[in-house]
Design a protein around this nucleic acid. Structure first.
Lengths: 207, 207
DNA sequence: ACATTTACCATACGGATGTATGTGTATTAC
DNA sequence: GTAATACACATACATCCGTATGGTAAATGT
């Protein structure tokens, strides 16, 4: 049943997954044809028939956007990972993705949110461990006590956020680390986003 | 901008979210009309117009299934919670949902997967804590060492799975608890599913 | 009284969408 | 050689889908 796919069929399957992750819904035949430069939907239809025959997708006849994903693609979605952060020794957040993470499709990301991998144990008392993926939502004003990702002098930290009268304090959960205190409106400081959740995959053993 | 919704508008909005979570795509006007018994799509269209005017949805004109969710519904999805499990003292899994969980939309659930809330500290050495939500995927054959949810004599446990020659062993991570050993093909035993991930919300403080 | 809002229906139009059928070409298998 | 497969295009059709317009009824506000 697990017949091999041709290069084109593979590309189309990937596009379906990509479209589904980005737009939140499967593409139409016309959208697929557009993306690959086909002048005709019937061409796409043949490839979809092949994909269905080989068991990679299911189709709801007559229904708009009636493509359903089967197997792995239905379980995991690949999301870009934009960097690593630690609460003790700041690490970098990159403009481009440095890696990808397979998220179970139970996790739909809010628009504009992104992923960072935690390194180190400075947040272990907040039950966040090395290797965990944190989901960061920008465009949210942090409230006191929330865990935020902030950039300070070009390096990134994950800390608990507290706003005082004249300063902003970033606390580690781990008592080994001293709080970071920043003057308000300090130029090289910016809160990147609020950590709205963590995710940990169970696929492999943990060390 | 945050105008209040009428009861009907609220129902329709809820249905859109529900359909989007279940089918992986927004509903069409016809599907909404069907669900509420409307004989006409134009009725639905008026309600959608109202929802758009009040800022709860956005619409992609002329596009099939072009409804986009805004605000909270775009960030959080409500998923049913089917019970609670502990590794030490087994708890019940119910047929019906006992509660709901707001998951960030980063988490798309695999079809058929469901959520359970962990109670107790028997998995604390696996870095799973009381209150965490585990994502359980049925229809997967568990491999040695994976964390599974199993039903034994009508009560549910979360343990590490090991298949031996004649028996199946379920280990706790916490040394305080003895492993459970079950004969193969024991009638009242069944592996419900494999834990493919955990999720923890950062919305509130943790105690 | 009058206007406004909410709620539902009927009809109709144009374009989108999935599907079926046929034509043609290149590549591979035997 | 010939059959089978993969690949792309053209045409055509029924239905789906979003949209526009108009009508009816009830509730509410002024």
């Amino acid at each position: 049943m697990a017949t091999e796919l041709t290069a084109i069929q593979n590309n189309i399957l990937e596009y379906i997954v990509e479209h589904w992750n980005n737009a939140g819904m499967p593409p139409t035949l016309a959208e697929i044809a557009d993306h690959f430069g086909y002048k005709n939907r019937a061409t796409v239809q043949q490839h979809l028939k092949a994909l269905e025959k080989k068991g990679y997708i299911k189709r709801n006849p007559k229904l708009a956007r009636g493509i359903e994903l089967v197997a792995e693609e239905d379980i995991m979605q690949v999301k870009p990972l934009f960097g690593e952060v630690a609460a003790g020794n700041p690490l970098a957040i990159y403009q481009d993705a440095i890696d990808t993470v397979e998220l179970p499709n139970v996790v739909k990301m809010p628009r504009n949110s992104f992923l960072l991998r935690v390194k180190g144990d400075s947040l272990k008392d907040a039950y966040i461990f090395s290797g965990d993926i944190v989901i960061v939502h920008p465009d949210i004003l942090p409230k006191d006590g929330q865990i935020v990702v902030a950039v300070l002098d070009d390096s990134a930290v994950v800390k608990r956020f507290f706003k005082k009268e004249d300063v902003i304090e970033l606390h580690s959960e781990n008592p080994e680390y001293e709080p970071i205190i920043v003057k308000r409106n300090y130029i090289s400081f910016k809160v990147v986003g609020v950590v709205i959740g963590i995710y940990r995959s169970m696929e492999t053993y943990r060390n």
